[in-house]
Design a protein around this nucleic acid. Structure first.
Lengths: 335, 335
DNA sequence: TTGAAAGCGCTAACAG
DNA sequence: CTGTTAGCGCTTTCAA
């Protein structure tokens, strides 16, 4: 390439990296040469990029170990529109910077104790952002390895890593207040989004209003809860529903399953059972009835993660900072 | 690292790449050193990987240019569970090979004529698989640049690139036969999945049965068709519906929109209008009524793409080969 | 089987 | 402003 254009490699490099101090005429020549040759710089060779300008960033997706390839619908995260939304949000920030996004799935069991987790090896001097479950060792490992990282939720164990999260309590309160306004007593119940119930202790305990005795409000969820939509059944929902007036569900996919279960059981929503969901993806609108949801600004959160990550990459000594987003209530039909 | 273990870098390299000709004892030492140091090879430095063993592969996502960040639900591909399913399928093959997946969004307008498309620059000696629209110049560009690539559908312009696709005609036939069996006349109508209507000429023309005069079957779709789910409206559906007995819709997201539109118009599904959809994601089961769909094995198709891509990377001179998958009909409630 | 040495394709520091 | 000269961190001959 350099020879083709009749200049030194250095000059070509300068042109490509748009260093200002290049004679316009030479620049011209080089650019034409590039166009003619169809030359594409081999980014892999820019070894010295890091840590200021790694070419790519990893999105680490934690998925349950028990996922099955041939069972796509049980395949939570990858079936969930979530992945796409997060990707879109992150790319909105990354793309203009010319940074690529590498998707790295990670079974919870992944890092074979003592070793650097695969995702770390993967990103090496790169860096990675990651969702976390409360018992997830990954955050600590990343921190120990000095790999710039941003988490998509508050880590279970305190780790000096930046994270982005949604104000769970506010979300629970919004849901509770709405249900109360609809005439449902919620006193004394732990009201928290179910998918997040993995965290130890009540997250969104919301003592609002006075409770009746017959009426109950339940949070449905927990780690084992799958939206087994195909069967049209939802074991936990089925088991609990008869005694419940309202439900607060962790995400739209679960809600779809719950709605089906309720329907199968002959319960009307929202007349018999009110349903509020924590999520708000396109699925919320597709459901019948459409879901009343506590909405988290997923795209913006992902964008913020990317932004934070970039900051940490540029300044490795930067202090961890977390950004908490406020959820909002979107009232539709289910409650 | 080399000094830490008291050996040459070459040996470390050999251990890491598990070259057999290494003294077990030395190997032992090096491995311990690695474990102790927490050493992680900097994959970026393996300049010579390509073309046989590029560290990563790109998944190029073509998205409409008119997408808006703050309008997530209109944001087709990234809202679509599709992305996750494709990702999952591809990773199933890539992951065991230790190859990463880079997600690269690409506006249709992207490649500024004459230049290597951004995604090409991105993958450079890497390689990339890509969806294609009939007028998409990308396939040709990739081929011209000699970048190994596999397409997710038959390219509009013939290009000697491998692709994976689903047998559209069979899909259309399955849908038609089902509708006919339900008593709907379909004679003389172009029955083809709408999203694919971008392809020139009828794809799945299916002259089955004898047609009545009042009854019609329409394919709904086209490039401009968005599942504007929030508005609960679907302009094209609304415009066409009154005169239609059945619909064959390109994908689940569109179908959700259509179902809403039909409901808003007071039409019952499937009693008044039968709906068959070409897709089958989790959304199909979430809908009310659940969608009768022509199912494409998305995960398997993606896995096959990855497999083909790997073959092309290993042998750049390999002849293009396309793999066509057979769709199947999943009868649920909408028809 | 191992180490020394020569790159890989690119960027950065340094003269001119 | 530009070319020359060192590397980057790793792999890969090529002798030993």
């Amino acid at each position: 390439m350099a020879e083709f254009a009749g200049v030194s490699r250095a000059t070509v490099s300068r042109v490509i990296n748009s260093v200002p101090t290049v004679d316009p005429e030479l620049r011209q020549i080089v650019e034409q040469a590039i166009a003619a040759t169809g030359y594409v710089p081999q980014s892999r060779a820019r070894v010295r990029w890091s840590p200021g300008r790694t070419g790519s960033v990893a999105l680490v997706i934690s998925e349950p170990d028990d996922r099955h390839f041939d069972d796509p619908f049980l395949n939570r995260i990858f079936t969930d529109p979530f992945l796409g939304r997060i990707t879109a949000g992150a790319l909105e920030v990354l793309r203009p910077e010319g940074i690529h996004l590498v998707i790295i799935p990670r079974g919870y069991a992944d890092p074979p104790a003592g070793r650097a987790p695969t995702c770390a090896r993967a990103t090496s001097t790169g860096s990675c952002s990651s969702p976390a479950t409360w018992a997830d060792p990954l955050p600590k490992q990343l921190h120990d390895l000095g790999i710039p990282a941003v988490l998509s939720a508050r880590p279970g164990q305190p780790v000096p890593l930046s994270y982005v999260d949604v104000e769970q309590q506010t979300g629970a309160r919004l849901a509770a207040e709405h249900l109360v306004a609809r005439g449902l007593p919620t006193a004394g119940h732990d009201l928290r989004p179910a998918g997040h119930a993995r965290e130890p202790g009540p997250v969104g305990r919301v003592p609002v209003g006075a409770g009746g005795t017959r009426s109950r409000l339940r949070a449905v969820g927990g780690g084992k809860l799958h939206p087994d939509q195909r069967g049209g059944r939802h074991p936990q929902v089925a088991r609990r529903t008869p005694e419940v007036d309202g439900m607060f569900i962790a995400n739209d996919l679960m809600a779809e399953g719950a709605l089906q279960a309720l329907r199968d059981l002959g319960h009307r929503v929202p007349e018999d059972v009110a349903v509020v969901v924590f999520d708000d993806s396109s699925a919320a609108v597709a459901c019948r009835p459409q879901l009343t949801t506590v909405r988290q600004p997923v795209e913006e959160m992902a964008a913020e993660m990317a932004r934070l990550l970039l900051l940490h990459i540029m300044d490795p000594d930067r202090r961890a900072r977390s950004v908490i987003f406020q959820p909002s209530l979107v009232v539709r039909q289910s409650a």
